[in-house]
Design a protein around this nucleic acid. Sequence first.
RNA 1: GGCGCGCUAGCUCAAUGGUAGAGCAAGUGACUCUUAAUCACUAGGUUCGGGGUUCGAGCCCCCGGCGCGUCACCA
Length: 519
Amino acid sequence: MESSDPDNQIQESQAGNERDRLVGEQRLMHDRLTKIAALRELGIDPYPRSYRRTHTTAEAVKLLEAAEASHDDPEEHARTEPVSVAGRIMARRGMGKASFIDLKDGSGRIQLFARENILGDKFELLDLLDLGDIVGASGAVVRTRRGEPSVEITDLVVLTKAIRPLPDKWAGLQDIEARTRQRYLDLISNDRAMRNALLRPAIVASIRKFMQGRGFVEVETPVLVPVAAGASARPFTTHHNTLNRGLYLRIATELPLKKLMVGGIEKVFEIGRLFRNEGVDQDHNPEFTTMESYEAYADYEDVMAMVEQLVSTVALETTGSMLLKAPEEGGPDIDLTPPWPRLDLRQEIIKRTGIDFVECDDVESLSGAMRERGIHVEPGLSWARLLDKVISSSVEPHLIQPSFLVDYPVAMSPLAKRKPGVDGIVERFEAFVLGHEMANAFTELNDPVDQRARFEEQESMRKDFKDDEADRLDEDFLVAIEHGMPPAGGLGIGIDRLAMLICREESIREVILFPQLRN
RNA sequence: GGCGCGCUAGCUCAAUGGUAGAGCAAGUGACUCUUAAUCACUAGGUUCGGGGUUCGAGCCCCCGGCGCGUCACCA
């Protein structure tokens, strides 16, 4: 470091002055950039193009355990063949002529044990390393006196110098805004964030496997659509320049999938992103993921059986159990083992509120009954929207263990088939766990004349109640089913909600890597 | 959108209206089995932004920004 060249000394002191002028994060970055320059001075590239590792950290630990298991001389310590590992420096404990480094990779962590007498000149490299840097290290895996599996390193390679510091090594990143805006820091420093990030794709893979195992064909249908139909929601709008026409982002995949039913794909499903131009809160994100499936010749009883099998199987595959233990923050254990109770919607509403929607069959009587029971009534809502409110405020919160609400009023369900022999009721169910709706399904309406009438009713609701979330008439779809859609059972299941359940997270933000923030 | 809460060092958090602090991270030094290493020293602040009240504001008031919670709606 010291130099007899006076110019050099002046430069060094100027550099020192420059450092003194810098404050906070600027100085932290300056120090790291200075180390990068020093590495280059030594002919070391701080960003080499690749590194050949022989073992992940988890594999290295396993290797040591195997060596110890086949080791017969208790006097001598087990020692593996040399390995090469790579990862991010998470902590460092310097001991003068020895140093301990915690290295983290995608599989776990391992300690690096650096000793000057073994590493030689390379020991000085440690002075140029920082927490957050990515390095490669090689050497035999041994166990230290304190029992920690460690790579006793003979070689150390800088793979990436970081120029910004990591979050607090103990507390991690706490601020929810920073955790979502800079999810990479969350993933590095919070184990639960990484667990969730990996659990969700495992859930999706498991769903796909389940559906494919039952002979369902996965398809992709358009995100950009001329009519945002198939559900009750406000759509996002966009514009195609060359075609010079307005388009919507889809709010459901239901109608195109049913067109494929007409076409003869008898078991079909799609896992995809939907977009709804509505609020952001603990369990709503404007873009979210669903799995929708349609099975020809099945009815909603078949679908109910499939849903309880699907959800319990996915939980078993991804967590090893159908029993979801309560998280540390508290809450009930959840048992997903089938069968789940089937609860008649009408009876459940009566049980919780005393309101019988068969008697309160118009807006006046229903809103009156709601007001009597202290349920806030927004003026100008349709009967269907009012009843939906009764259900979500008075029934859903009680559905903690998995259960099905069964048989909905036709006014709430424009795409579901009427239940034979029961006036005003359709064959529809929703699945609930922890008070959240997980799935919505019905025996699909395939009578084209009735379907057209239902759409027209929705259109008039849009006008009469200024309900811009009412479902929309899709002429192309009606023409399709006028050619004959087989009887079918359909399902929509919220992947984000399912991920929340299996991750035992209360907020949708914890299972979406980059959720929408407010404003 | 209404209401409530929050925003202080890179990170995690303190601070009766009265000199803005600690731990981690950083820098210097000591240390060859540590693991939230330890020990000594050093540096690091537009207290989210703007206005106001006050002798004096991180703290009280007003306006704005961002976030969270809650109410309403969608899965």
